[in-house]
Simulated scan of single mutants.
Amino acid sequence: MTAFALESGYWNSLGTGVGAIILYALVGLALMLVGFYAIDFTTPGNLRKMVSDGKPNAIIVTAAGMISMAFIVVLAVYASAGKLSEGLIAALVFGLVGIIAQVVSVRVIEKALGIDIGAALHSDTRTTEVLVVAAAHFALGLVVAVAIL
Results as ranks from 00 to 15, higher is better:
residue 120 A to T: 05
residue 64 A to C: 04
residue 53 D to S: 10
residue 54 G to K: 05
residue 111 K to F: 12
residue 89 I to R: 11
residue 82 G to R: 01
residue 54 G to S: 06
residue 97 V to D: 03
residue 140 L to W: 15
residue 38 A to E: 04
residue 62 T to H: 02
residue 53 D to H: 07
residue 54 G to P: 02
residue 66 M to V: 09
residue 106 V to W: 01
residue 86 E to M: 12
residue 69 M to Q: 11
residue 110 E to C: 03
residue 67 I to D: 06
residue 82 G to F: 02
residue 51 V to H: 05
residue 107 R to D: 05
residue 43 T to A: 12
residue 27 V to Y: 00
residue 126 R to I: 14
residue 37 Y to Q: 08
residue 63 A to P: 09
residue 138 F to E: 06
residue 109 I to N: 01
residue 117 I to M: 13
residue 119 A to E: 03
residue 114 G to N: 00
residue 30 A to S: 14
residue 134 A to L: 10
residue 124 D to R: 10
residue 92 L to P: 04
residue 71 F to V: 02
residue 83 K to H: 09
residue 80 S to I: 00
residue 114 G to V: 10
residue 113 L to I: 01
residue 117 I to N: 12
residue 129 E to K: 08
residue 62 T to E: 04
residue 101 A to S: 13
residue 115 I to E: 04
residue 68 S to Q: 08
residue 99 I to S: 02
residue 102 Q to A: 15
residue 52 S to G: 11
residue 147 A to R: 01
residue 112 A to E: 08
residue 92 L to M: 14
residue 131 L to D: 14
residue 99 I to Q: 01
residue 65 G to T: 02
residue 143 V to F: 15
residue 124 D to H: 06
residue 46 N to D: 14
residue 104 V to K: 11
residue 98 G to V: 00
residue 129 E to L: 08
residue 109 I to W: 03
residue 50 M to L: 15
residue 71 F to R: 00
residue 56 P to N: 04
residue 101 A to T: 06
residue 72 I to S: 02
residue 105 S to T: 13
residue 33 L to I: 15
residue 142 L to F: 15
residue 120 A to P: 08
residue 79 A to C: 00
residue 125 T to G: 04
residue 129 E to A: 09
residue 65 G to D: 00
residue 139 A to P: 10
residue 33 L to M: 14
residue 114 G to A: 07
residue 122 H to W: 11
residue 59 I to K: 13
residue 141 G to P: 09
residue 144 V to T: 10
residue 73 V to I: 09
residue 107 R to G: 05
residue 53 D to W: 04
residue 99 I to T: 07
residue 83 K to R: 13
residue 40 D to L: 01
residue 76 A to S: 15
residue 39 I to K: 04
residue 147 A to Q: 06
residue 39 I to Y: 08
residue 37 Y to L: 11
residue 91 A to T: 01
residue 64 A to Y: 08
residue 31 L to G: 07
residue 102 Q to Y: 14
residue 60 I to Q: 01
residue 92 L to Y: 13
residue 118 G to P: 02
residue 112 A to N: 04
residue 31 L to M: 08
residue 114 G to K: 00
residue 119 A to W: 00
